[in-house]
Design a protein around this nucleic acid. Sequence first.
DNA 1: CGTCCGATTGACCATTTGGTCAAAAACCAA
DNA 2: TTGGTTTTTGACCAAATGGTCAATCGGACG
Lengths: 203, 203
Amino acid sequence: MGLQQPRTRIQQKNRETILDAALEVFAQHGFRGATLDMIAAQAGLSKPNLLYYFPSKEAIHVTLLSQLMDTWLDPLRDLDADGDPIAELRAYVRRKLELSRDYPRQSRLFANEIVQGAPRMQTALATDLKALVDEKSAIIAGWSKAGRIADVDPHHLIFSIWALTQHYADFDVQIRAVLGPARDPLAEAEGFLDTLFARLLAP
Amino acid sequence: MGLQQPRTRIQQKNRETILDAALEVFAQHGFRGATLDMIAAQAGLSKPNLLYYFPSKEAIHVTLLSQLMDTWLDPLRDLDADGDPIAELRAYVRRKLELSRDYPRQSRLFANEIVQGAPRMQTALATDLKALVDEKSAIIAGWSKAGRIADVDPHHLIFSIWALTQHYADFDVQIRAVLGPARDPLAEAEGFLDTLFARLLAP
DNA sequence: CGTCCGATTGACCATTTGGTCAAAAACCAA
DNA sequence: TTGGTTTTTGACCAAATGGTCAATCGGACG
């Protein structure tokens, strides 16, 4: 039937179960690599039952992506023009790295989507995301002009934060393969990135 | 039949055509998202003809991945213990960024593979790649200890170079969506990254 | 020209996969 | 208990897809 708004407790619960299972499967296999059977198995439900709660495989995917954008941009939204510039930017890096640590599946889902050309997010990127980044870039540019941080291109500064933090989630297997066991990449990254941005931003 | 070594000129040419087409398709859609029909269409050949030159879809993919590793690691291999530390590392960043500019499809192919858990590269990562990175990390650690560059974790320094340079290829659509047209991300990145690493590495 | 071997393809096959549907089961209010 | 509503599922379908194969084509060489 394709329920729009969950009405009962069981609907609420099953929709969440499905979305969590789908996140797992989509993040690991990409949209086309994931099958409804995989998601159903992961969720402990039958395939027709999935399609009772969501009208299609794509609907599940789209639901995940739109949930994602919100969570993902929250830390950037928090960037406060009235705060201390260095502290604000460091806090942004730290929060972003926490997302990579706590929600690696979301990060990989996003990476899959972007690497493949963002077929289902193009407009969101060019509107919402661009607007937010432009706004925050203006703030950063102001800080630069006021001599409160070093003179760096604000857009590329933001890109570098994204690249560095998401790398630890998206390329986790590579990093662990290189570091070997008995090391904690995410914990080490926190100190490294803090140093990196401190040196980059110091006026 | 599954030809091992190209013997004739036409085999040589068609194998190259197929690999180029497959790179295009795999990079954009991932392994499972790519179909033999897509690759055949892109290559201008019939599907059975593909399978005359390669025994299976997976064989094409594997061939691409192994070619990739070589190209990808060359710049790191060039890192010379006897050169000037800052110059060597800057050159590495620049070469890596050139790869992102000139071979974005390879970068995305690699990203697809790693994000999805590197099912076909695990061992290569844990052996060849790890060995090379460990070797070069030792060199960098030596430079740090000698006070010729700042004291940074060599492994994470290398990760940061990978993250920053590959980001411009892998997340190209996102970056362009945010920057808007009329800007040249890769050209701008060169200056930005040069500054970033100069400040990070200065003793 | 004719022959032989590498190159090409149309037709076909088995499996996978997203999705449907009618019927059964579970649930719930009266 | 009963009647109606929601939830679940086994059986099924059409399309897509990786791969096979016998047959045909084409060019180089004698």
